[in-house]
Amino acid sequence: MSRTAVNRTLLALVGLVLLAGGLLLLAGGLDLNHRWHLGLPSDWTVTDPHHAVLDPADRVRWRGDGWWWPSVFAALGVVALLSLWWLLAQLRTGTADRVAVPAAADVPVRLRGGALAQAVADGAEQIPGVSRARVRILGRARRPRARITLTLAPGAAPGPVLHELAAGPLGDARRTTGVSLPAEARVRVESGSVPRVQ
């Protein structure tokens, strides 16, 4: 699962928990269970507007039971570790240091991701209309993908440049390495070339 998918799943999960908890408290505070006949169990203390948010009696209710403390520590520990892992996952750049080369499957070849990126970038900068190209190889060694940031010279159109990029440097990189290398390009235009009028 990609980081995007993980992030979005966990964000949705956290969002759902917050929304459900908030709605429950709100329904309790505004007495909606009674007024709108929501059908929440009436022995839930959260449905009574005059009840405390968390009664000390409720808080210590299960303290005597043997399962309580292990469960509390386990739950808090799991949440803390999981969130720590989630946090650290955001700090990674996602760059592939090495790329597996299927074209040389019988010879052990080590291709650095940076070298492949540099080759594509150098080729891209040769395309007429491109003033700067930055390439990063992302993902894993066996499934690398390229992220290309193109800065066009003033007056150039993205269409032909992209066509040449796919046919030229990107196609060459795919052919020589045998990697399918899906790519996404973000196109900008050189700034400062047009006189700014505020």
């Binding site: 929304l19 505070g29 005059h50």
Partner: peptide, 23 residues
């Protein structure tokens, strides 16, 4: 948490904020 009741203005405002954050 023990002193404030569910119909306390702060609790209701807080719940609304939590709902908005979740959304």
């Amino acid at each position: 948490l023990a002193d404030r009741h569910l119909d306390d203005a702060w609790v209701i405002a807080g719940s609304a904020v939590v709902c908005a954050l979740g959304l």
